[in-house]
Design a protein around this nucleic acid. Structure first.
Lengths: 317, 317
DNA sequence: TCATAAAATGAGTAATTGCCCATGAGCAAG
DNA sequence: CTTGCTCATGGGCAATTACTCATTTTATGA
């Protein structure tokens, strides 16, 4: 088949090889013969196709164990949406599975013909999810970021979900050019008064569906690791009853927003109302169980994507 | 996880195994250990998941559609070679894409160490293709032109593919110093009796691979534009059932050579036999669709390089 | 309870794939 | 022109996967 010398052509070849391998079911030997390259090169192209995420695999079957957990969780927490994926037995990497599941659900929403507002938070899990999204043309939708992407040092190095998403999804997108935490309540008032931020706030309140990560608290929590909160402040916050956060909004063990000065400094868009829209939490893992259970209990989220193991803990909690 | 003996449970296990294999990327050994079964059983479950189409693989790349079209066309018309390149979205039928693809395929043949005979027709598309060829030293091969390059007024202004090719490719080349059409069948006999033409005819019949354009008929067809055929003659020819031409050889809508006096006047080398060699048509565009479909249907060509849009029409034709 | 057929199993083996490494082409800097 | 660097290539080999076949297990009905 046609070979082109530039790197674009290499990706094309990778796509061809990947297609022949995974979709057409050819062996790498056959692919090599068909493309006029060595078997090793064919293998490299197939690897490249996987590495470049050209090949998307998904499982289309409700595994009964997961299904049972799903139903139980839906009833217990009155959820609008629930997806439980099988646990990785080894379970070292934290986003395997739910990233694909979250991507599939995001895609399902984006495929709707009628215009929607999709809000999204940040975090490693959501980043992994949007990286799974295929290219789509969705001019009818609007995508809004709930959380700022500016770190305390002024850079934009946080998990930059909205921009990664914009790479794949052709839709109007509204970033949040603020830090996660302001220095004071007064500063927040000032920042939120900016016209650009105003429109994002308005849009966020009208979100039809929202995808958020669920953050745990502690010294190795994302908020500390990424420098938004000093370890001392974190400890103090936890002693005042905070157990988790969603987009920076701190909540207690009952899943209620913490009545604490820190929440007056959170620059994020308020979590969209659950009465009208679906707010889907995407998280898994032992460390997040406590905050996830609280968020579910208090109705901070009314949708959940998690794995089997975590789902079991949510049920027994 | 516990194994279930009913077939539903078996499918569940298959789904689980398939998920672990394709999504989580674990080996079948690991899956076997995790599920408490033998590795053979794990392999069977993975196979089952694929066979039952529980695992959906998708290629997220523009050329995926091209590959599907390629396979469908290959099956439908029993092709030895097929390459479908992405359509130029703006594209009002240029040679963008297929010229490069044709050049790449020509190059692939020329890179073979064992001697081959490569035959080539003429036309704007092929001209664009050979212009893409890099310099190569191929003393082992022979290149033969199937079609004359002399216009009715005696000049050599037609798309001069063989000489352009000879500029780039160092190989023995055999031009066809005749017009496309003779004035009569008797003249053809006379011209074909010349020793130089004889050797070209012999070589053409032995071509291993052939690249030809596919010409449409009509007032603005190349044959008219370049003055080989008067508009009146063209109209008469079409009324007698001609729908297209390859190297001047007229064929009907079934892709069979037209039983018509004009084909006795065609000075070109007969199209090399398809039983032994590969005859690749290189063409695209709405105006050529009818003649392309006929040529494919009748087996005048057993290879095709075209674009996505045209390929779709070939399938639905 | 037993006979029978169908399905599942695991050993063995062939085929396929993944990966390391030496090699050489291509290319930029000196 | 030489040197040094990068990177694609293909050989070789180990790991992994697919398949075959004899045997065992399971389901079913009399």
């Amino acid at each position: 088949m046609a070979r082109r010398s530039d790197s674009q052509g290499r990706l094309d070849d990778a796509a061809r090889a990947g297609w022949l391998y995974y979709v057409a079911g050819r062996t790498q030997d056959e692919i090599a013969a068909a493309m006029g390259i060595s078997r090793q090169s064919a293998q490299r192209l197939v690897s490249l196709a996987v590495a470049e995420r050209l090949i998307k695999v998904r499982l289309d079957h409700p595994i009964s164990a997961c299904l049972e957990l799903s139903n139980a969780l839906r009833d217990k927490f009155n959820l609008r949406y629930i997806d439980v994926v099988p646990s990785d037995p080894v379970g070292t990497s934290t986003t395997v599975g739910i990233a694909e599941a979250a991507a599939a659900e995001i895609e399902r929403w984006l495929k709707k013909p009628e215009p929607i507002v999709l809000a999204i938070g940040t975090g490693r899990t959501l980043k992994a999810a949007v990286d799974q999204l295929p290219s789509m043309e969705c001019p009818q939708h609007r995508i809004v970021s709930l959380t700022g992407n500016i770190t305390p040092d002024g850079s934009a190095a946080y998990y930059n979900v909205i921009f990664s998403m914009a790479d794949a999804i052709k839709a109007r997108h509204f970033p949040m050019p603020l830090p996660v935490l302001c220095s004071s309540a007064e500063e927040r008032v000032l920042l939120h008064g900016q016209p650009i931020v105003q429109s994002t706030l308005t849009l966020g309140a009208a979100a039809d569906v929202t995808f958020v990560g669920i953050g745990e608290l502690g010294e190795d929590a994302p908020l500390c690791v990424d420098g938004f909160l000093a370890p001392d402040d974190m400890a103090a916050l936890m002693s005042r009853g905070a157990v988790g956060e969603i987009c920076g909004w701190m909540f207690d063990q009952n899943g209620k927003l913490l009545a604490d000065p820190i929440n007056d400094r959170v620059a994020s868009v308020p979590i969209p109302p659950r009465e009208r829209g679906t707010v889907i939490g995407v998280a898994l893992g032992r460390r997040k169980e406590r905050s996830m259970a609280a968020a579910l209990r208090g109705g901070m989220i009314n949708g959940l994507i998690t794995d089997e193991k975590t789902a079991e803990h949510m049920l027994s909690a």
